[in-house]
């Protein structure tokens, strides 16, 4: 059992995964496990325009296997198509102060969780030879890594992720606007944030991207402790970004607070769905493999 669990790092508790090593090791382990559990490649559309061959890897659909080449050269290759090979994706990562928070022991901060998730996503995309870039933002754009598909680009992304530290407030529009400049062709935009920002402005920017033909996936990162209101009988709850505070009694407000959070998540989900945006609510204690699987499943709808 222990061996099996070790092989499926993607299904381990994120905190335990983080204990295995740095972002690179964790992401690689997650992706290996994730791909091993799939019957087909993730994030893959369908196109009739053949582009090139590439070596077969576990998870690739057998229907794309070049049987002729197998018969002729006894080597496993799959066919790739034009649309897929040219997929360009950009990960937009929120590194605001609110992301640098953890609500309990043996748990990752939202930012640490997001970094590993982004690293895993990038690895999956790059393995498919999809060009992948990164934009990190708080009140302004903090870091930009242009989308590339070449071998070794993942290490550049990892280096950028490793250098990122929590900033201040959250303003997503400049980062999303910059995506438009960086992705001139239709591509995939992955927005990773705790969504503690101006919802209307952010949605407007995401819908703008969608209208430009990009596929948009939103990962709403939340700490499980944010779902409920705990604390002393009466406390002054302070926003780490704005410094604003509310004095409240958790016991009195817990029920309605939970209702408000649920309603907010539902609003994000319905707003995204209405705008053709793929929305995923992710808690920081969710194994990375589940998140990748859900994202892959829904991504196939946009193909």
């Amino acid at each position: 059992m222990a061996q099996r669990l070790t092989n499926r790092v993607d299904l381990l508790d994120p905190y335990e995964v983080a204990q295995l090593g740095g972002i690179e090791l964790a992401a690689r382990g997650v992706v290996e496990g994730f791909l091993a559990g799939l019957h087909r490649s993730p994030f893959r559309g369908f196109s009739v325009e053949f582009a090139e061959h590439r070596p077969y890897q576990p998870g690739d659909e057998l229907r794309y296997l070049d049987w002729k080449l197998l018969a002729r050269a006894d080597r496993l290759f799959v066919k790739q198509y034009e649309e897929e090979t040219n997929l360009r994706s950009m990960v937009v990562l929120d590194v605001s102060r609110s992301m640098d928070w953890v609500g309990g022991e043996r748990r990752l901060t939202k930012l640490e969780y997001a970094k590993r998730l982004v690293a895993a996503l990038a690895l999956v995309l790059l393995r498919q030879r999809d060009a992948t870039g990164l934009i990190a933002f708080d009140e302004r754009v903090r870091s930009v890594v242009r989308a590339r598909a070449r071998h070794g680009h993942w290490w550049q992304l990892l280096a950028a992720l490793g250098e990122l530290e929590a900033g201040q407030g959250t303003v997503a529009e400049p980062a999303l606007r910059q995506v438009t400049d960086l992705l001139r062709r239709r591509g995939l935009v992955i927005f990773v944030s705790d969504l503690l920002l101006d919802k209307d402005l952010a949605l407007l920017a995401l819908q703008h991207l969608r209208h430009r033909g990009h596929q948009v996936v939103v990962f709403h990162i939340m700490d499980p402790a944010e779902l409920s209101l705990e604390g002393p009988p009466e406390a002054r709850f302070e926003d780490p970004e704005t410094g604003g505070a509310v004095v409240a009694r958790p016991r009195e407000l817990r029920g309605v607070y939970e209702e408000t959070v649920r309603r907010t998540i539902d609003e994000w989900r319905s707003s995204c769905r209405g705008g053709g945006i793929d929305y995923h609510h992710v808690l920081t204690d969710t194994p990375f493999g589940y998140v990748l699987r859900r994202a892959a499943a829904s991504r196939s709808r946009f193909g």
């Binding site: 944010e226 002393p232 406390a235 709850f237 302070e238 780490p240 505070a245 509310v246």
Partner: peptide
């Protein structure tokens, strides 16, 4: 009352 840092203050508000 003690101060608790809590990012989701906007929900609480």
């Amino acid at each position: 009352p003690p101060t608790v840092v809590f990012p989701a203050v906007r929900y609480l508000t």
